[in-house]
Design a protein around this nucleic acid. Sequence first.
DNA 1: ATGGTAGGTGGCCTA
Length: 249
Amino acid sequence: MLQRLVEEENPDIVCLQETKVPDPLFPAEALKEIGFPYQLYRGMKGYNGVAILSRHPLKTMENVPDWCSRNDCRHIAATVETPTGPILLHDFYVPAGGDIPDPDLNDKFAHKLAFVDEATQWFTATPPARSVLVGDLNIAPLEHDVWSHRQLLKIVSHTPLETDGLKAWLAAGFQDAMRHITPESEKLYTWWSYRNRDWKKSNRGRRLDHVWLTPDLMHALRDIRVRKDVRDWDSPSDHVPVILDLDPA
DNA sequence: ATGGTAGGTGGCCTA
């Protein structure tokens, strides 16, 4: 799956979320063989987990917060050298938040809101520069990031509490690069539930995965493509790959 | 209004 994607896209860097594998079991050798000698990963058994795979050396960012004091492997960050200087890359996996959109009734939803709020505060206190932030943020912030704005207003991932939270995080120093490429008036999804017999026919998607850039990198943005076709590969993820073409030179 | 699927774990949970 990943190998085929790598053959087709030839990416310099791959960011993964929900790897669900403890570090000692991470398939480092196999990933080296498909072209990524530089790897950073933070995983745990069964849940969460993030990884950055790279053709170029990575330097781990050390002083990152332990979000919500849970040590739960939802964020990893690294710098990579480019001809115009280092770029900082953040890879996030935001809590999904369960089903009930009320923080008083649902601890998972409360955790999600707290996570987004903490991230907002941290980036506000530590303004990012020359940074890329990607990941499964589990929130579809805009009207056309979901198949039906009206029908999803009370569905976790598109409630005003979450979408306001995500917009505040973005405003702490980033720009929504996907929406720079695809206008806000156009439907744009990166995830289609498994609970639809025919995902393509019903097309009830959401944009849960994001690519954010700091304003000082916007000039380097060439393209972003959502590999919707991958949703039809064998044993697909419910999320599809998002490809960023960035030319910092 | 509800249930629908996937996957890993261990008889249920999270997504």
